[in-house]
């Protein structure tokens, strides 16, 4: 359970982390007794980082993301987002959240779904139209505005849900295994798109996955977690360049990082 992060020295002294997790504990009380979902989690996420949480099911990666989003409340430790509590950050609309399933409302068109957060947040009509057009273009869904979700493939639905999370231009994007249900080829394609999107929008992204290649391909920082109790076992700063073609996955560097992630996962299992 050693924290191997080396970023402290590299980070400009003035910059405060966007997401600061320190000593976070979370215990769920269930009928079968307490479940220790997170234990002493420490993590800093800086502006523009692409952080992946990887680990087997039950390691608390989704729970940690939900804590950051203010959807769960830690039972111990402190967690700040943009210097605010997660709940305040949520009310300040600091982040967009992409869930495991696209979860588009079937009674709304794609455009209508992307518009949903804008309506709730009270954007003007013209602004809604402008933003819907902009984010649909960002995820390559121009021309699908008037289609209904069920008329689209799973990958396109998930892209629409990303557009929905981007619509109100929060500077943090939280993604909970967004491509877990999609096949390998679609997933590759969407990973590429997410990287492009990240480069274009310069958002801070926290991404939950259980795929090692996905984590290594996408991230600047990989957080390896392990279960019972959910905790961080390794934090890896990726030396890969920001520009990443798909075939970077065959490079020696990539394979080395993937190895380290795998070792981390294995160590967590034995420990």
């Amino acid at each position: 359970m050693t924290d191997l992060t080396t970023s402290e020295a590299e980070r400009p002294a003035m910059q405060k982390p966007v997401i600061d997790v320190s000593g976070v504990d979370l215990t769920f009380q269930t009928n079968d007794g307490p479940i220790h979902a997170l234990k002493d989690v420490n993590l800093e996420i800086n502006k523009g980082d692409f952080v992946s949480f990887i680990g087997p099911s039950g390691c608390g990666k989704t729970t940690l993301l939900r804590c950051i989003a203010g959807l769960e409340t830690p039972t111990g430790g402190t967690l700040t987002v943009n210097g605010l509590s997660p709940n305040e950050a949520r009310k300040a609309r600091s982040y967009g959240y992409v869930f495991q399933a696209a979860g588009l409302y079937p009674w709304r068109t794609i455009g209508g779904n992307v518009k949903l957060p804008l309506e709730i947040m009270g954007f003007s009509k013209e602004e809604q139209i402008r933003r819907v057009r902009k984010v649909l273009e960002l995820v390559d869904l121009e021309g699908f505005e008037k289609k209904y979700p069920w008329q689209l493939s799973g990958g396109m639905q998930q892209r629409a849900s990303i557009a929905r999370a981007l619509a109100f231009d929060a500077d943090i994007l939280l993604m909970d295994e967004p491509f877990g249900a999609l096949d390998e080829i679609v997933r590759d394609h969407l990973n590429e798109q997410v990287l492009k999107l990240w480069a274009r929008t310069e958002k801070t992204i926290a991404f939950v996955t259980h795929s090692i290649p996905e984590a290594v391909y996408l991230s600047t920082k990989i957080v390896v977690m392990s279960p019972r109790p959910g905790r961080i076992t390794d934090i890896i700063e990726s030396p890969l360049p920001k520009e990443r073609p798909l075939d970077i996955r065959d490079s020696a560097e990539f394979i080395e990082i993937a190895h380290r992630v795998r070792d981390g996962l294995r160590a967590g299992h034995e420990g």
């Binding site: 009310k91 982040y95 959240y97 495991q100 979860g103 709730i120």
Partner: peptide
Amino acid sequence: SMQRDLMRTYSAGHIATLLKL
């Protein structure tokens, strides 16, 4: 719960959640 969580991430109130979802 996912659909309701989505509305929570927008900080949507009871009425908005009722009307929109």
